[in-house]
Every structure is written in structure tokens, then in C-alpha cells.
Simulated assay, not measured.
Amino acid sequence: MSKPVAIYQQLMNSIEKKIVSQELKIGDKLDSERVMSEKYGINRMTVRNAIKHLEEKGILESIRGSGTYVKAIPQIQGTVDLGNQEEILSLSKQIRQRGMKSSRILLSMQKVKPEGEIKEAFKVEWVYEIIRMSLINDAPYALQKTYIPCDLFEDAERFDFVNGSLYDYMQDRNHRPKTMVSYLRIEKLPKEYIQVMEAKESDRYFLFDYLGYDNMNQLVEYTISYHHPKYTTFRFRTQIDLD
């Protein structure tokens, strides 16, 4: 039988979830102890205990004569599982499903002539190169360089890849990946991305190559994605023929 969670801990969890989901933002003022006591049907000492613990964690700040304010976003311990999806999900959706705050920055987008392995994979003259950085709780988590063929996604330059989902966009064009082939290795970040990812030159990241194929088995996505190991887990399944 699991041990019941103390009431003050339940209140702490509730406040933390509201901050992570941005229902409460940094700088927002919390309800008073009296209001929270009445709202949740608990005594004020329990409310005070929860606030005290959140202050010790650096999440809340109480100012005498003013009230209690959100000071920081909780560092919820969680990982993004990159090898166990029943369906192909965007990275931001995976992060949110694990109760963490997800945000994204578009570093660049341009139409380029593919080179090297990208050219070999697509065998087309032009592709869009989309470079984005994903954040967990406002901290850099992943850097993704995505290539999609221009002939299939002619209007990609007009799409909002910061607030919109790449896979939703591809779905609307009837070329969402249905099958994904991925390769994993561990490497250092390219030097040009060390500063933006707040990394050190010696840091090593999980590096995934994703090749996405639509329902016609046509290659529609090639993504090179660097993931911070702190938040990343992955799983794989092998099938062995014993004959």
C-alpha cells in the first residue's frame, strides 16, 4: 500500500503544476493564506507550511506587507523518451506530456541546395533547412536541424514553426511521416551552437538522425537532432531470428 501524500505536499504539487503549465507565471501573486485555506478546505498552518517549503526550493518569494509571488519555474524531474512512441509525436508534445514546460526558438530557416548525406537521401535540387532550439523549463534542451523537400512543401516559408507543429503542417499537406528510421550516436555540439545551447566544448549530446517517410514510403523529413542527456532516455527493441 502506498503511503498517503501529506496535505501540505499536495498543495505544493498543485502550485508547482500551475507554474509549469503557466497558469501562474513568474511575478504573479498567489492568493493569501486565508483565501487558499478557504478554497482548499485546509487550515492556514498547512498552507503556510507548503509556502515555506516552496520558498526553500526557490520557487516562491514572500514579501512582508505585500504577499507571496512566483519566483522561479520548478525543475520537475522528467525525461523525454525518444524510442517508445506508439505514434510519431513532436518533441514539444512529448515534453508537455511529461509535465514540463516546453518552448521553442527558431534560429534560422532558409532554402538551400542539399549537400552530402542530405543530398544523397532526398535526391532533389532544393530543400528547406529549419534550425530550431527546444527548451525545457526555459533551459536549452535540444537543437534540431530539419530538412524537408521544397517540391512537397512549397509554402513552408509562410508557416510559423515557432508556435506551430511541424508534423501538423506536414499533415495538412498530406505528407506527415508515418514511418521513422532513426540512428543514434554520441557527439559534441558543433562549435557554432555551443553558446546558444549554453553548453561547454567538452559536453557530449545524444545525436539522433531521423528519416521520416510518408504513407507512400516517400522520404519527407531528415532531422539531425542534438539532445541534452539530462532529460533524455531512449529505448529500442530487437528481433532476433534464431533459425
Rank of each mutant, 00 (worst) to 15 (best):
M1I: 02
K3L: 06
L11Q: 02
L11C: 02
M12Y: 00
N13Q: 11
K17L: 03
I19Q: 02
V20S: 09
D28C: 11
R34D: 02
E38Q: 15
G41W: 05
G41F: 01
K52H: 10
L54D: 03
L60V: 09
E61C: 08
I63N: 06
R64H: 10
Q75R: 14
I76Q: 12
Q85P: 02
E87W: 13
L89M: 12
L91I: 10
S92L: 07
Q94G: 09
Q94W: 01
Q97C: 00
I105H: 15
L107S: 04
S108V: 01
S108G: 10
S108C: 06
E117H: 12
A121T: 08
E129W: 05
M133V: 12
M133S: 04
S134C: 05
L135N: 08
Y141I: 00
A142P: 03
A142G: 07
C150H: 10
E154R: 15
E154L: 13
D160S: 10
L166K: 07
M170T: 06
H175K: 12
R176W: 03
K178V: 00
T179L: 11
K188H: 11
V196L: 14
A199V: 05
A199Q: 04
E201Y: 12
D203E: 11
Y205S: 00
Y205K: 01
Y205W: 10
F206R: 04
D209Y: 15
N215V: 02
H227A: 05
Y231T: 03
T233A: 08
Q239H: 14
I240P: 02
I240E: 11
D241N: 14
